[in-house]
């Protein structure tokens, strides 16, 4: 299980790295595009920033599922816990 879960871990890691890298790159090299309105009056900075946070939670939960923590850990994802 160790190698299976670590492989899926590395794939998910790569996905997140791309997301995060994209965010950092836009900030560094095209900062003005962070101001553009994206959806429902919210700008890129807000939408992308929130997506990175929600994305981290979703990917980690997904990883938990892939590693077989399905039944118990998924119900504990409620953040207020």
């Amino acid at each position: 299980m160790a190698s299976g879960s670590s492989r899926s871990g590395l794939i998910l890691f790569a996905v997140y790295l791309l997301l995060y890298g994209g965010f950092v790159a836009i900030n560094a090299f095209a900062p003005n595009s962070m101001e553009l309105t994206l959806i429902s009056g919210l700008n890129v900075a807000i939408v992308y920033g929130f997506a990175l946070i929600v994305g981290a939670v979703v990917l980690s939960a997904l990883y938990g599922l892939l590693c077989g923590d399905l039944s118990r850990s998924s119900e504990d994802q409620e953040p207020q816990a």
Binding site: I53, A56, V57, Y63, Q77, P79
Partner: peptide, 19 residues
């Protein structure tokens, strides 16, 4: 496994706080 699960719980609560 517990190390992994506690990290997931950590990420969820920390992520929520950062929002």
């Amino acid at each position: 496994g517990s190390a992994r699960k506690s990290t997931i719980v950590g990420i969820a609560s920390i992520g929520f706080f950062y929002v």
